[in-house]
Design a protein around this nucleic acid. Structure first.
Lengths: 169, 169
DNA sequence: AAATAAAAGGAATAATATCCTTTAAATATA
DNA sequence: TATATTTAAAGGATATTATTCCTTTTATTT
């Protein structure tokens, strides 16, 4: 058996632990339902629990599955509003961008933050109690950060779709 | 004991099942780790498993917890690009908006879709294999929908933060 | 055909969910 | 303020169920 140069470097262990069709089906099932157990997944795939169990463990230890989370019905818990805000900096100096990211990482209100290409530099997903709270947050937390240029916001009126499913599985 | 008019309608059962501080702490723990069991949550809260177990079951049956999902490391599974696209329609007729939403709901590539206020009508989160696939998808799937006006896209260069935590718990 | 890897099957362990009874706490009532 | 009533929590016991391990069989690859 021949090892390629990468595998040789790792003592025969492949870097790219590839996923076969069964792995992908298991991931798709767990993506829908973290509580699915080896036995029920095995039944769906026409297998037995042992190989399925071992594959799940492998997918966990190798990091294909990062973690398991409860999905909450936030509207039932407390009324809130969500705002997507595009932000651009005065200058695209790398240190400025890092500084911005470090800051927003600390804000619980910013649940997601993406570095994007195009007219703006960042896209933030912000969740707060109400419009007043958003105004306060934008004014005191975002606008005060150094070198903020333009900010353009879109208020979410309705969450029409949120599948949280990786479409390439 | 007096019932208010809403409670009377439900035979004494309150509509707004309110969450106390313990419920919120349980939700916060499960939001981080769906695999946390009653015993370990109870330990963290200085309680015993029974009341915690009963509260979890209540939170599930009353819908505060919608479901449990595995969070995947999609970059390890397959290279992909994510694009946020703002879309506006020619006219904001309600039926046109419904039609648009019905269509995008069918596209696996559109993992999230929000109705927003402001310059545009919708915000889509789109995941595809590569820029070519995005061009193909935008051209054949989105641009061909009836009454599409403007489309403005921002390509994700980096996912700097994705907490998936409801900040108001 | 041989060797390796994966899957199957079964069995045992361990842990958790679930139930029931008792105790404590909080609230309402006298 | 004391007492009664209701609700929630605690504690323990049981039964179910999943994990985990080991051996055998099948499939795949060389």
């Amino acid at each position: 058996m021949f090892l390629n140069e990468f595998e040789q470097l790792l003592g025969g262990k492949s870097i790219m632990e590839k996923l076969d069709s069964i792995d992908r089906q298991i991931l798709r099932i767990l993506e829908n339902d973290a509580k699915a157990v080896a036995k029920s997944i095995a039944d769906q795939l026409g297998m037995t629990k042992t190989p399925v169990y071992e594959r799940i463990k492998r997918l966990e230890t190798e990091g294909f599955i990062k973690n398991y989370k409860a999905v909450l019905d936030t509207t039932k818990i407390e009324p809130s509003i969500t705002v997507f805000s595009f932000v651009s900096l005065d200058a695209q100096k790398g240190s400025l961008m890092d500084n911005f990211l470090e800051n927003v990482a600390l804000f619980n209100e910013v649940t997601e933050c993406y570095v994007v290409g195009g007219e703006f530099d960042f896209l933030l997903k912000i969740t707060v109690k109400n419009p007043d709270a958003y105004y306060e947050f934008a004014k005191t937390r975002i606008a005060t950060l150094p070198n903020i240029g333009a900010v353009k916001s879109a208020f979410v009126l309705n969450e029409a779709k949120n599948s949280q499913h990786f479409p390439l599985l």
